[in-house]
Structure formats: C-alpha cells, structure tokens
Design a protein around this nucleic acid. Structure first.
Lengths: 205, 205
DNA sequence: CTAAAAATATACTAACCTGTATAGTATCGG
DNA sequence: CCGATACTATACAGGTTAGTATATTTTTAG
C-alpha cells in the first residue's frame, strides 16, 4: 500500500514534505476547531475522526498547543497563496487589485478552501496577550493588514495604512458576523462598503 | 452588617432586586470571561475571585450555562441603556443620532462600563448554532443591528437596513480588532469609515 | 527475507471540570 | 431569644482532559 508514502502538498510555495497522516490530522483539526471551537475539541476526538491514535498525533505535534499553531499557520498560508494567485492573474491598472480584493474574498468564502478564519476564532478563545496562540493570531491579522496596505500603495492611495485598517476591520467584522449568523449577507455588505471606502480614498489621492 | 441587604441596581430599567453576592458573581464572571475566555474560566476560579463559594453560586445560577446567559444579558442590557441615555440626550436634527453613534461607541469603549462585547466572544467560543449561548449571542447581534436600522430610518435613510448591516460589521470588526491587538486604533478607524458610509447613504436618500 | 521505522491498541496518570452532599456558622425578622 | 434564611467550609462523585508507557502489528527499504 501507498498509505505511508510521502508526497508534496498541492499548495504553491508549500512544498514541504509531510506525511499523509500529519496532513489528515491538520485538516481534521482545522475543521473541528472551526465547527466546535478549539478548547472544546479534545485530542481524543481529533484522532478518532482522523482515524489514528494519540501516539501518532504526539509524534508529529509535541503538544496540543503546537498543533493549534500549525493549524493557524497552514490555514493562513493557504489563504495567502490562494489570494496571491488570484491577484497575480490580474493584469490591469495599478488599482485593480485592491478594487477586486473583496470580490475574491467573497469567492474564497464560498470556495471549498474556506474553513473559516482561524486567527479570528483563536484570538477570541485565547485572549491573553502572552499566549503563543494569541500572539500568532495577532501577527497574522497584522500581516493581512499590511498585505492590504501594499495593495493600497500600489494603487497610489495616499493614506494607504488608514484604508488598510478600515478594510481589515470590514473583513474581520464580516467574517465575525457570518460566524454568528450564517447567510447574513455580511460579506456582500462588506464588499459594498469596501467599494465606497476605496473610491473615496482614490479620489483623495 | 449590611452585607446581605437587598438593594436596587443602579442601571435604569434594571430595577430588579438582586443580592449583592449575585451581582458580585456576575461582575467577576464578566471580567474573567473577557480576560481569560469563557471555557477557560472555571466556577472555582469565579467563586474564589468573588470571595464566595460554589454553594452560593449554584443557589443563584442553576448551572454554568445559566450564569453565562445571565452575563450576556446583563452586559447587553447595560450597553443598550447607556447608549439610549446618550442618544436621548440629543435634541437636534433627525440624523444627529446616527451621526453620533460611533462617537458614543468610542466613548463607551474607553468608559469603565466597558467589559468587552460579550456576544462576540461568546459566539466564537460556542459556534454550534443549536447551543443556547450561541443563540442568545446571535439574537443580541441582531438586536443591535435593528437598533442601528431604527436610527437610520429616523434619519430618513432609504436603505436603512443596508446601512445598518454595514455599520454593525464595522462595529464587530473594530471590537474584534481591538481584542486581537489593544490600542490598534480600530475604533477610531471604524468611526471614520462609518462617517463615510453614513454621508453617502444620506446623500442617496 | 530481514531489520528498521511507522503506526496501532490499550491502559494509565494526574490534573481539572461541573455539580452535589453534608455539616456548620452568621445574620436576619419578629 | 428563636426560627428561618443566607452563607461558608469541605469533601467528594463522576466526567473529561492532555499527555505517557508499554507492547504489538504493519509497512517500508535494502
């Protein structure tokens, strides 16, 4: 059987070699953390759903905290890669990327790649700023904001950081609202608000 | 000693009679849930900080779930009362209330009444839609959105519900961002974005 | 085929959790 | 002073949790 063969992951820029079981554990954990919460998901549940045992899990991850950090990192990486691919496929004017950002976010939320925004949930469950999980969440939130700021700069927007903060707030709020009530139309609403804010910022630049 | 005397709570519209200890338990729970998370705060910790015992806690609240629900309700009620008082003190034009909404939100966040937005945290920790805590969080989020919609209606805004959804996303996103990183300036940024969105909505009405 | 490596099965520890049982103390109204 | 009520103190039951120890089976590589 090929069950334990190693292979490369499909996501661009993520060509680390990772065993199938490790990937399965990560995927199952991502799903369970999203649907039940991190603290409410025990490692026993994870290994049961992943079809393996705790011994194997603790071989790949030295602790549950380490597993949570790995889930956060993979989830963030996948989103960044997906979004970069989408934006790099654009060829138009310098402001096209930021104009299309929320359209891609909407597409991503309805795509099979979407498993929630892990850093939002994680920061809520681990509010202590000295906690490593909180720190990583905070860092990822900041990275995403800087990513938007870069797009704003490329679009020659004067207050790029200011717009980026506004748009990241819209993003986090929309995801939050969707998690409170699915199908609330929050993403569509945020997309519209983003267009208003971007148009004004462009006009002022 | 007056320790066991009953008295009325100070918040307008909340003149239920509640023992001092019950109030203390509620307040301590609110603070601990906010700073450590709900699932990570045990009843033993709550009674220790409140200076009482589990027997007393379970006399006032039949379960931890009931306590969490009570915390959510009180927290939401206090915010609504505080905000209503602020808005009712205004006497100006019909669009003054919605114009000043985010200014009051900013003021409230820095006031001693602020203990975080409980329904945002609770919905993240209890994502299951059949969970009573999640349901109450969802209801409170909806109530706040309807509250904004009412203000938009009074300001004669055509798409009042649409604007209300946008503003509630800004609100939840800003609070979320502040919880991820304190002092991020998210509230100020959301206030500015809200002004842009409100101005456009007024112009279109 | 063989030896190493990978994964499983199972039982266990030690800590923590919610909720209860039991008994004793303090404070109140009358 | 007395009975009722509010509260405390303490121990414990029953469950779940993260993580480990030990032994066995499966798979891989050479």
């Amino acid at each position: 059987m090929l069950r334990y063969k190693l292979y490369k992951t499909v996501y661009a820029g993520y060509n680390q070699i990772m065993s199938l079981l490790k990937q399965k554990i990560l995927k199952v954990s991502t799903d369970l953390f999203q649907s039940r919460g991190i603290n409410s998901t025990g490692v026993d549940t994870i290994v049961a759903v992943a079809g393996t045992t705790k011994m194997t899990l603790y071989k790949y991850f030295t602790s549950k905290e380490e597993l949570v950090l790995a889930v956060l990192q993979q989830s963030h990486q996948e989103f960044q890669n997906w979004m970069n691919d989408k934006l790099n496929a654009l060829s138009g004017k310098p402001d096209e990327k930021i104009q299309k950002l929320f359209e891609f976010i909407e597409e991503w939320v309805s795509s099979p790649y979407f498993t929630g925004v892990t850093f939002i949930k994680a920061s809520a469950e681990f509010p202590n700023e000295e906690n490593r999980i909180h720190q990583l969440s905070s860092q990822q939130s900041r990275e995403f904001r800087q990513f938007i700021s870069k797009l704003a700069h490329e679009a020659a927007i004067k207050d790029a950081d200011g717009l980026a903060l506004q748009l990241s707030i819209l993003f986090e709020g929309a995801v939050q609202a969707e998690q409170i009530k699915r199908g609330s139309g929050a993403i569509k609403s945020a997309k519209k608000a983003a267009k208003t804010l971007i148009d004004l910022a462009l006009k002022q630049s």
